[in-house]
Design a protein around this nucleic acid. Sequence first.
DNA 1: AGCACGCCGACT
DNA 2: GTCGGCGTGCTC
Length: 662
Amino acid sequence: MYVTVKLLNGCQQRLTYSIPSSWQLSKPQGAVVTVPLRQRTELALIEEVIEKPTTHYSIKEAITYEPILSEPLYKQFMQRLSAYHALDPVYLYKRLCAFLKQSPEKIETNAPDNTSFTTPLQAGTHLTHEQQHIVDAIAPYITNTTYQPCVLHGVTGSGKTEVYYRLMQHAASLGKAILFLLPEVALAAQFAKLFRARNELNIPIFDFHSATSAPDKRALWQALRTEQPLVAIGVHLPILLPLRHLGIIIIDEEHETGYQEKKHPKINTKEGALLRAATHQIPILLGSATPSIATLHNVNQRGWKLFTLEKRFSGAFPDVKVVKLTPCKEKRAYFWISKELEQAIADRLSKKEQILIFINRRGYSFFVQCSTCGSIVTCNNCSVSLTLHEGNILRCHYCNFSMTLAPEHVCLQCKGTTFIKKGIGTQQVVTIIQQLFPYARIDRADLDATINRKKWQKTIQAFHNQEIDILVGTQTITKGYHFPHVTLVGILWADIQLSMPTYNAAETTLQQLIQVAGRAGRQHPNSTVIVQTMLDHTLYTYLPEERYRDFYAYEAEHRHLLCYPPFVRFAEIELRHSRQEIVEKESAHYADALADHIKKDTATAITILGPAQPPVHKIKNMHIRKIYLKAEKISDLSNLYQTLQAIPWQSTIFFTPNPLTL
DNA sequence: AGCACGCCGACT
DNA sequence: GTCGGCGTGCTC
């Protein structure tokens, strides 16, 4: 038998090989084989079976094939996932197999390790009635292999993890494999360790993400080959694993945008997981304290099952107070700390309780502005302002370009020589609070500190041991940590995220605020969250956790009115080129070509938005333009994109279904 | 994507 | 006369 194959190493040309008849591959399309190529061997994906070798050169014979990658359901899933993202399936196999060839000497040192401070699993063996009810409802879907998306809306501190663990135990007892997904590597590593420590599943638990060492990945691969049941924990990669007898997929923090890959192609792992569950006919559990609007929409419209945990396992809900900051009214020296927050801090300090102060990295970092013309010092390669770091160093968050703000620095716009430093950072907040409370023990935990892992660990440990009274931090502190003695959470400026120019800004702002506020009152009955804002917004009335589902009703009405997802399907087409004129001209042509095709096909209704210059329109000297498409089905949009890919464009073009960020 | 081949400049 | 830079092109 002769087949054409595509090499996984990226070689564009299709090659022909023969397949030994002893393999008994009845349907070889989509199977992964190793083939000889010159002096070495390469992995390849079989494209099609062909009649006879029409060429003069001698055809080599394929060496081996990977049976676990040739499962019909698995192949079907890979096919559907690549079609959804308008990708060549070769790309997906390439990602999965890349580690097989990784050099064994490569030492990974960045494996994060924070286990000691996480939300503990319940010590006892029995569940609350709420928890037991949910486990009992979902377990039969595992037993009977039924596709059923289930949503677990559990308030912060309600014990979602225990529900996950019981369902995992059930699947393991049936000899089934489990996929467990978390939105970032650090969390994945933490959960893997947590589950391993508990040691009641009797099946191996594997990490599978970017920080997993090559030997560990190979050990996982070996386990997959023996088809034994196992748990795979990770962020994106696990959904591509060829797992036999998959029992359930669990997605924690399902609302997080981290499930979409940050670089192109921006594969959406949550949607990939749903596709996989549907293909394998198994249940999938999506858990969050703040489920996404899209997920709740599917509960209403598409028969997803909703389960709720309304009670905290211990402690009580905090009292949420919204305080409006009034800019420069009396020129208070400490504008960023309202009188209410200052009093609350004093009160908690006197009771020897702990305080968390949050600021949002993005909005709060410092930038430098020319005092003559008002222009902001920006990166030479990217269209973003440079942020000021210690030692007067300006750095770009996108390309890592850095320069020193020298005293002789001259404004590129007006040749001015004086500059103002604007914004607020954790260091400044620490200084302000230290002045207000000279005897309080204050430290900070922000992104700069994360880079220095040892210092970060020490700070978290000290806060945990109550050697620090007030911890000032950025978002990094939100997830996965458990500080029982925190009774006051202060959010310095809640509005920043809300001003993001995305259709889901209100949703992500509220989710973030609730997650942060949820750090308070894990053990104490009387705790407070103070949310400082500059603007009034209906959003803030939904801050108490028990009102989250009312927010859904409010937000869904807006989205429906404005024709935004989830009431319509969105896709993004991004064009990149080093020359601005080209990308500008070509994106206009692209939009015209789209319009032409839409006109020809009257059966499908598609709306074009743009082309537009996105907020960050230049990265590493590449100019970017974006076109957004709306339709009823993503497949209509990916088909249209595929059609236009036949045209030779000068720009690099990317297709993203359901983009979650700009 | 690799990796060979190959055609020119700095060494023993 | 040999080692090695990385530019071009082929892989069944």
